[in-house]
Amino acid sequence: MKASPYAFIAPFFIIFGAFSLVPLLYTAWYSLHNVQLSSLDTQTWAGLDNYKNLLSSDFFWNALKNTFTIGLISTVPQLMAAIGLAHLLNYRLRGSTVWRVVMLTPYATSVAAATLVFTLLYSWDGGMINWLLHFVGIDPINWRESDWGSQFAVSSIVIWRWTGYNALIYLAAMQAIPTDLYESAAIDGANRWEQFRHVTIPQLRPTILFTVVVSTIGATQLFGEPLLFGGVSGSKGGSEHQYQTLGLYMYDQGWIIGNLGKASAIAWSMFLILMIIAVINLLFTRRLRKSQ
């Protein structure tokens, strides 16, 4: 009997079951009840009320919108910069290992440490960014309370942390591209830019798709950066919830306000949103494969 393969994968499934599946199902159960953090044992059946409540709540739609816009302004520049960086690193460089390590450092920094530093940089009064802006004649910006400024600031933390990571993934994929493709392109008279567009990018397609999916999941769950950026009562995401993401809204409802039923409904909504994204992605990949 071949038991060992099952034994080898069993730890994962046991842990997954205990720490992911059970909580997941329990959250679903909670989301159909009125549950307060202070009285977990008294759950009253609420049916779909929590979900209906969300759909009619401005706060929910606002959080969804913020998650989307912050996701967009953090993911798109980040992935484009990552490809550019990877392309540069793919040339023969002096001390290439050093550059690669340097690029990965932000990724190795903890969210808390990075956000703390960024919060100081973006400080309204005496922050370095406002100090630099005053040289070009721009009045100090209240980054935390401004609508677009706060989203930009939060995105910049995400970009700073993840660009290097994605660049390394791209770099690994680029090095797997056979050199004869470039050679034949060169023989056909393609310059560097054309080689990049017509050889590198198409060859990277599966990798790009992978990073897009991973970044999208990350963006949907964005939590630590905006929470810590907000400082005291950061779970509100600003006085007008201008950078309250779905993750923050869930945390605020569940742990600060103590409304666990509703928080669970938010959690499941996030899950459903991710499922929808996954399906779209699947269809997209299939079409891509067919067209090749």
């Binding site: 038991a3 060992s4 034994a7 080898f8 069993a10 730890p11 842990i15 205990a18």
Partner: peptide, 14 residues
């Protein structure tokens, strides 16, 4: 051995 090790690990975790 491997099975035993895995089992030990799993029970330890549990």
């Amino acid at each position: 051995m491997a099975v035993a090790a895995v089992a030990a690990l799993a029970t330890g975790l549990l």
